[in-house]
Write a protein that binds this DNA or RNA. Structure first.
Length: 177
DNA sequence: CATTTGATGTCCT
DNA sequence: GGACATCAAATGC
């Protein structure tokens, strides 16, 4: 019953961000750091197209968002509110999908340790929390998600049904689903 | 229980 | 100086 952890191919990311955001639900976000192997089922995502005023790419290239202007299929990791890290997958064109929540699947002990928790059970619910659980930070920005190094996305079991809601935690362009 | 506040990198005006 | 794709702890009902 070991899940297939092979990375999804680059073609997966060569699509519109909204399409990729829906297709990511049910997939596995896999993290290997040294001997530690962790994985979680992606259960919540958010698409940020280039023409979205809430997207970091909307106002053009900066030092922070450089990865969003690179090839699809790479990671865009940024620092949020000066404290937390958030991880996106870059899609075509100059767009990205924020990974907002995971259902922990593999390496829960590592996740809990990275979170600095003992009894706490909220491991990966929230973009900042999941990056802390998987020990993802700016050093992982730009990682090629199509190779099994560092961090990547595996096939998992794509969700049969995906629901769309107003976006979470933003104040610009809140009307976009 | 709900609401407020403190932590503070990066980009904005 | 202010805003922000956040989170946890403190404070107020």
């Amino acid at each position: 019953m070991t899940p297939d952890l092979a990375p999804l191919p680059g073609t997966f990311y060569q699509r519109d961000a909204v399409e990729v955001a829906a297709d990511l639900i049910g997939r596995l976000l896999v993290r290997r750091r040294g001997r530690a192997l962790m994985a979680g089922r992606i259960v919540e995502t958010e698409a940020y197209r280039r023409d979205d005023p809430a997207s970091h790419s909307y106002r053009g290239l900066t030092r922070r968002n450089r990865s969003m202007f690179g090839p699809p299929g790479h990671a865009y990791v940024y620092v949020s509110y000066g404290i937390h890290h958030c991880m996106n997958v870059v899609t075509a064109p100059v767009s990205a999908v924020l990974v907002r929540a995971l259902e922990p699947v593999l390496g829960l002990g590592h996740m809990a340790r990275h979170r600095g928790l003992d009894g706490e059970r909220v491991l990966c619910a929230g973009p900042g929390r999941l990056c802390q659980a998987l020990a993802i930070d700016r050093a992982d920005d730009g990682t090629d998600l199509t190779t099994a190094r560092g961090v990547w996305v595996a096939a998992g079991a794509p969700a049969a049904e995906v629901v769309s809601t107003p976006r979470i935690g933003i104040s610009t362009a809140v009307e976009l689903p």
